[in-house]
Design a protein around this nucleic acid. Structure first.
Lengths: 232, 232
DNA sequence: CCAAAAGTGTTCGACGTACACCCATGC
DNA sequence: GCATGGGTGTACGTCGAACACTTTTGG
């Protein structure tokens, strides 16, 4: 039995999603190093010795975006391991899906310059990401869509306090459908533990002030949210 | 920036599940090499150079069990990457869930001796698997339970042709609940593409002969199968 | 005849869908 | 007033749960 084991490095790559202006956005960085210098890519980096993959994802999140990975929803997706996916050698990518509220443009750092939010639709249409990051992003978006059905992560797209309209906007942006505001509100409030009323109301915009909510303790949604389309 | 990248090896570990005698079983091997000589473990092995992880899983399946991995349901689960999980050095495990029909006891080969089916319940209760394989198996069983709700993989536990009773037995064994035979049959047959009637009937046992079915083209179940318990 | 498994018909209730209608704010 | 967004009431249909009842075999 020869030692024909593959020796390789692990990279963590993050699909950090948020909702801005009613559309799904992803955080991309412009690469400062070879290969793919100047190309857009998902933030990420190599696993360090004695480091757990999840810890590496949290670390990269802080280094490249100043986001607190411990407070975000982080979910590991199936790995990408094609032997020729990285010209530097054998690198297997461990993708993470991160769901973040709409925060100010994050800081750039390390080997990444000019990190910024970019609409997912245009990124996937142009297919301009380095490596196989378009495939990774595609997988992450699909997972996010599915997670909205069965879990309460939609609230992770919002801030500490949010209105029903904001939460509904998350579903509409990620799923790309219009939902009935009245039935949506009832479904959410009747699901014990999804959201908790804060008591106060938001009076900033036009229209009747909306009640404010915060995230409840429940993480899994049972029964699930349904994705069937409705006319607005 | 020092080159403090972790250099490591990838292992694929397979949770090969089947249903025997109405109970969920998993394929385990007795280890023939250090570490954990003589202990039970999930079948698996190291990734080879220029090999995709999925290809490695299919290869190991054929080597250690003579099962055709291309014809089975294979699903990659989140990796296990604790730095100290393998005494031989940094080894990250890529777990695969395989769902197989109840086949004759597979052949043993390579560094694994006496591969055999073992009830999942007793394996998890005793917690006797090598490495962190109990955690891996636990994850695989949870995934299998969830997959039965949203996909048609339950039929992968059966042979080419099967009766409604057999298919229902899969759900009952994996979920550990009793289902109403009458409502189950209706639900399955009314879901277009889940199963297709063969036309013939099976007359081996006692009772009215059951109609035979084969797998249909549909893979995702919509609406999903519900897991709520019913009294038998 | 009896036991056992397969399958049909039917009732009930929960819930998603659709929409009429009312509430509260800015302009 | 009127547009805009927030929220309640309610009727309808679909579907899962429960179960009475019939069918077809072996012993």
């Amino acid at each position: 039995m020869a030692r024909d084991h593959a020796v390789l490095r692990l990279a963590v790559d993050l699909s950090i999603l948020t909702v801005r202006d009613g559309r799904l956005h992803v955080l991309v960085v412009k690469r400062g190093n070879e290969p793919f210098v100047g190309h857009l890519a998902l933030p990420g980096g190599f696993l360090r010795p004695d480091e757990e993959p999840l810890a590496a994802a949290v670390r990269e999140l802080g280094e490249e975006t100043s986001l607190d990975g411990l407070r975000l929803h982080l979910e590991q997706l199936p790995i990408f391991g094609a032997p020729d996916r990285d010209p530097r050698g054998r690198v297997v990518s461990v993708p993470y899906l991160a769901i973040a509220p709409d925060l100010p443009v994050p800081t750039a750092g390390s080997d990444a310059t000019s990190a910024h939010w970019s609409p997912v639709a245009s990124i996937l249409d142009d297919a301009t990401l380095a490596f196989d990051h378009c495939d990774i992003l595609d997988l992450a978006v699909e997972r996010a869509r599915a997670s909205l059905e069965t879990t309460t992560v939609a609230a992770m797209f919002c801030g500490e306090q949010f209105t029903m309209g904001e939460l509904r906007g998350v579903y509409e942006a990620v799923w790309g459908v219009a939902l009935d505001p009245r039935n949506f509100s009832r479904k959410v409030t009747k699901t014990q533990g999804f959201v908790e009323p804060v008591g106060s109301r938001r009076t900033d915009g036009v229209g009747r002030p909306a009640a404010l909510y915060r995230r409840g303790p429940i993480r899994r949604l049972n029964p699930a949210m349904l994705r069937s389309s409705m006319d607005s």
